[in-house]
Simulated scan of single mutants.
Amino acid sequence: MPRPDYPSQTVIITGASSGIGASFARALAARGANLILVARRRDRLEALASELERAHGVTVTPIALDLTSPTAGAELKAAVLAAGCTPTSLINNAGFGTFGEFQDEDPARLADEIAVDVSALVQLSSAFLPTLVAGGGFLINVASMAAYTPTPRMAVYGAAKAFVLSFTESLWAELRGSGVTAFALSPGATSTEFNAVVGTDDATAGARMRTPEQVVATALAHLERRSPGPSVIDGRSNRVAALVGRLASRRSIVTLMHRLTGPTRRRTATSAPA
């Protein structure tokens, strides 16, 4: 697979108002790609769009959209068409987590978490895949290190990210030979608004933080490989942890994760999707 011709690409990035999404936007704009930025916060999107257009001379289209909508895929596709854009690549980065004992969580909040982390990602992948194939672009779905282990007190988040990992690796196999490069990106603890949205630093269990720029550099280096694999983990220590998780028993891993996330840590927290 040849290195992407970035100036020929128009890339949708969800969750683009901050963190990893904004870092993807800056890195891709610097490579000459046009962008479609998607998040709830229109003011942040418009500020970032202006910054990137001035700095790199690319076209950046901000679209404010709440991805908890049950018709998020159709809504975004309509908005993109109305803006006169033809996307060739998609980065499903939007997501959020909750922290607390499952029995204490707000069911409506958990439904929103599943809507953003799972349903919207599947809908957008389905809605835009034909144009990605036509444009010979790429599909990057952001999973998490939580995809590799059961995650007590973040049970829904971990399960959602395990879905993203499995779903995307399956797409990687289906899309071989189509001209589309698809893979899952799994960051570990990263210096973003994730903990602020979750409501506690306990969600990352005191892990050493990577930066959004490091995560994006890992993703783009993988994308530019001759034959990118179905998934990539950011950070050497995270790759080692994933390997250890595969070698240890499920009982041992879930017991360890339960210890890391409690019991002295806060049991509940409020959150809202990015």
Results as ranks from 00 to 15, higher is better:
residue 224 E to G: 15
residue 215 V to M: 06
residue 3 R to Q: 15
residue 151 T to W: 00
residue 133 V to N: 07
residue 195 N to C: 14
residue 28 L to K: 03
residue 125 S to K: 12
residue 54 R to A: 15
residue 172 W to N: 11
residue 251 R to C: 05
residue 38 V to S: 06
residue 33 A to C: 05
residue 213 E to A: 15
residue 256 L to C: 01
residue 169 E to D: 07
residue 171 L to Y: 13
residue 234 D to G: 05
residue 274 A to M: 13
residue 256 L to D: 01
residue 12 I to S: 04
residue 145 M to R: 09
residue 249 S to N: 04
residue 73 G to W: 03
residue 70 P to M: 06
residue 184 A to P: 08
residue 221 A to M: 05
residue 117 D to N: 13
residue 95 G to F: 09
residue 42 R to K: 14
residue 227 S to I: 15
residue 170 S to N: 13
residue 42 R to N: 14
residue 246 R to H: 14
residue 94 A to N: 13
residue 228 P to L: 06
residue 52 L to F: 12
residue 27 A to K: 14
residue 95 G to A: 08
residue 36 I to H: 06
residue 231 S to W: 14
residue 130 P to Q: 09
residue 159 A to C: 05
residue 231 S to V: 09
residue 9 Q to K: 05
residue 238 N to D: 01
residue 114 I to V: 07
residue 3 R to M: 15
residue 120 A to N: 11
residue 123 Q to D: 07
residue 132 L to T: 12
residue 53 E to M: 09
residue 142 V to M: 00
residue 32 G to D: 06
residue 158 G to A: 10
residue 80 V to R: 06
residue 176 R to F: 03
residue 72 A to E: 06
residue 106 D to M: 03
residue 230 P to I: 12
residue 64 A to R: 13
residue 96 F to K: 04
residue 11 V to N: 11
residue 216 V to R: 08
residue 73 G to P: 02
residue 207 A to H: 02
residue 113 E to Y: 13
residue 225 R to C: 12
residue 266 R to A: 00
residue 12 I to V: 10
residue 13 I to E: 04
residue 6 Y to T: 03
residue 159 A to D: 02
residue 44 R to S: 04
residue 187 P to A: 14
residue 31 R to W: 03
residue 178 S to E: 07
residue 161 K to V: 03
residue 10 T to P: 02
residue 56 H to L: 04
residue 28 L to D: 07
residue 61 T to K: 09
